[in-house]
Write a protein that binds this DNA or RNA. Structure first.
Length: 574
DNA sequence: AAATACGACAACCGCTCAACT
DNA sequence: TAGTTGAGCGGTTGTCGTATT
């Protein structure tokens, strides 16, 4: 924690001196009209000093998080509540993970962004993600703040756009294409079922990720249970387990009690019992809330070790968790997303004010009737996936301005023109596949291995071309720039593999503080037991939350299977 | 050595939503 | 039911350090 504090304020060392200039000479102050707590008091802006940090930490120790507008009153800080909250959340909060993103984290961010779009907070709050094989899950992004992720992504965007590379690795493009094709073949989605979920969530026929997400409060846990009465959750799990990337199942009917903040566009998380029509065991909000108190992740773990993989069979691959394909059905109003900032250099004129393009379905349409305009028009899909939006944007961008890519594409043979149709959207994938790795035959690479390949032990970042080892079996020496990532990845994998303590999932000391939410505990345990099957009930335990306000709010913050090693597979479950 | 470009990071702003009155 | 307030989120901007020219 001390370390975190130290790390959190990298500028503090010079800041006190610097800020004397910065703040004293030309203080960035808010005259108080901007914040509710201002009240005529001059509110300071700009970088925080270590003294202010200390005050804020002291305040939070005493009063806990929340009620940020009272900070000024109680602590004497001349900062608005928002600023305090931000400072705490991004820098002072215990168990924040600072420093460069690891290759695994990079991959996860890319993948999560492909799925979520610019949902930084949710990415940061991500707890577990089921791997694509449905047999294991991965613990992701602990201690990363939304701001960090956002900054990383924006930086990455700039970098890649400068380099003329797509935002997403070609693997994701191919995957989207493959799944789209599959979706066409299986017809596994009821596109007319808008009442249930966004019909254009083309991949909603897939069994969604099961993640520990948003279980919030007992009432909602109950609602979760009740709302799933018409869904044999255990069978859902089985289906999930049995699911292949092409496993086609209808998404169960889910109803939500209330619209969770910022989540409505994708899926409920804070209410959180369901994701993708599947019960959530990931608690985005809980995780975040808990982490806000330093309770979140195995609090005493080396931050690096908190990047856990539950997959022991695939080496370090699990972290990539290959579930990227899983799109989340949108429930309720969906905020159109995708990030103009992702395409600052892209001519978006053709998008106009129309919604972002639909995704898979639209790609279908695109493939069938290539003109891009075709899917600009009728695209009611506000699907909140960044990937295919990016495909579309980038296809335009690349087809229009990146001539070099299309030039290269003329040599491509691995993806038949028929497959790609005239779809410029996907052509760039092909092109980049060539750029990246002598091209991958989409048929030669199963979706299941899709991400495994991406995230193979080669350790190459998704940001970079997948090593040919993951594709062809031959090893391609990573570029020098990747060397560090590779080493990092190897280290990471070792750490993960070493992290086999059965109690690893049990958040250590902070669980000991657990007090409230017993009923939630029981309810949720039951619910999960239901999900897993009755026999598993005894082996599953929800760890109640701490007494912290936020944790109380959410009921509990974590859950774990008893007697189950932290590194395990879903197949180990009863 | 100076100027410039770039990346990383911190912080602020505006907006939205949920809870409360 | 409408208005207010607190909190959170995503987008944007500003600053600093470093690499490059």
């Amino acid at each position: 924690m001390i370390e975190d504090l130290q790390m959190s304020r990298t500028t503090n060392e010079s800041e006190d001196g610097l800020l004397s200039k910065y703040h004293s000479d030309s203080p960035l102050i808010d005259e108080g009209n901007g914040g509710s707590s201002g009240g005529g008091i001059v509110l300071k802006k700009g970088p925080w000093t270590s003294a202010e940090d200390a005050l804020l930490v002291e305040y939070v120790k005493k009063h806990g998080e929340g009620n940020w507008n009272a900070v000024q009153k109680h602590s004497g800080l001349s900062r608005c509540g928002k600023s305090c909250r931000l400072r705490w959340a991004n820098h002072l909060r215990p168990n924040l993970k600072k420093g460069a993103f690891t290759a695994d984290e990079e991959r996860l961010i890319i993948e999560l962004h492909a799925k979520m779009g610019n949902k930084w907070a949710r990415m940061a709050a991500h707890f577990y993600v089921w791997n694509r094989n449905g047999l294991d899950f991965t613990l992701v992004l602990p201690g990363r703040t939304d701001n960090e992720i956002k900054n990383y992504w924006n930086t990455r965007i700039k970098r890649r756009q400068r380099a003329g590379l797509p935002l997403y690795p070609p693997d994701l493009c191919l995957q989207a294409f493959q799944e789209n094709q599959q979706g066409q073949n299986t017809g596994g989605i009821n596109c007319g079922d808008r009442g249930q979920h966004d019909p254009l969530q083309a991949k909603s026929f897939e069994i969604p990720d099961v993640v520990f997400d948003g279980l919030k409060g007992s009432s909602e846990v109950l609602s979760y249970v009740s709302e799933f009465q018409d869904i044999p959750v255990s069978s859902m799990l089985l289906k999930r387990i049995a699911s292949t990337p092409y496993y086609s199942l209808p998404t169960p009917t889910i109803h939500y009690q209330k619209r969770p903040r910022e989540s409505s566009d994708v899926f409920p998380d804070s209410t959180g019992c369901v994701q993708n029509g599947f019960p959530l065991y990931q608690n985005d909000t809980c995780a975040e809330a808990a982490s806000s108190f330093g309770l979140s992740f195995p609090s005493d773990l080396d931050p690096d070790k908190t990047l856990l993989s539950f997959n022991v069979t695939q080496g370090g691959q699990s972290l990539s968790n290959g579930n990227s394909s899983t799109s989340r059905p949108a429930y309720g109003p969906v905020k159109l997303e995708l990030p103009s900032l992702q395409y600052p250099e892209t001519d978006l004129g053709t998008w106009g004010t129309s919604p972002p393009p639909p995704l898979l379905e639209s790609v279908d349409a695109l493939i069938q009737s290539s003109p891009i305009g075709a899917f600009e028009s009728d695209c009611s899909s506000p699907r909140n996936s960044g990937l295919l939006d990016a495909l579309l944007h980038e296809s335009k961008y690349l087809s229009g301005g990146k001539k070099h890519l299309s030039d290269k594409s003329t040599n491509s043979s691995s993806i038949s023109p028929g497959d790609m149709a005239d779809c410029g959207t996907l052509n760039f994938c092909k092109n980049d596949c060539e750029d990246y790795a002598e091209l991958i035959s989409p048929l030669a690479q199963s979706s299941t291995s899709f991400f495994n390949g991406c995230i193979s032990a080669s350790g190459s970042s998704l940001d970079e071309p997948p090593s040919a080892e993951t594709i062809t079996g031959s090893v391609v020496k990573p570029e020098p720039a990747e060397a560090d990532l590779v080493q990092d990845k190897e280290k990471e994998s070792k750490r993960q593999m070493d992290f086999t303590c059965p109690d690893a999932l049990l958040v250590s000391d902070w669980f000991e503080q657990s007090s409230g939410c017993v009923k939630d505990h029981g309810i949720m345990t039951d619910a999960i037991a239901t999900l897993l099957g009755d026999n598993s009930a005894a082996d599953f335990e929800l760890i109640p939350s701490t007494s912290s306000p936020a944790s109380q709010e959410f009921g509990f913050s974590y859950c774990a299977w008893n007697n189950m090693p932290a590194v395990c597979q879903m197949s180990d479950l009863p």
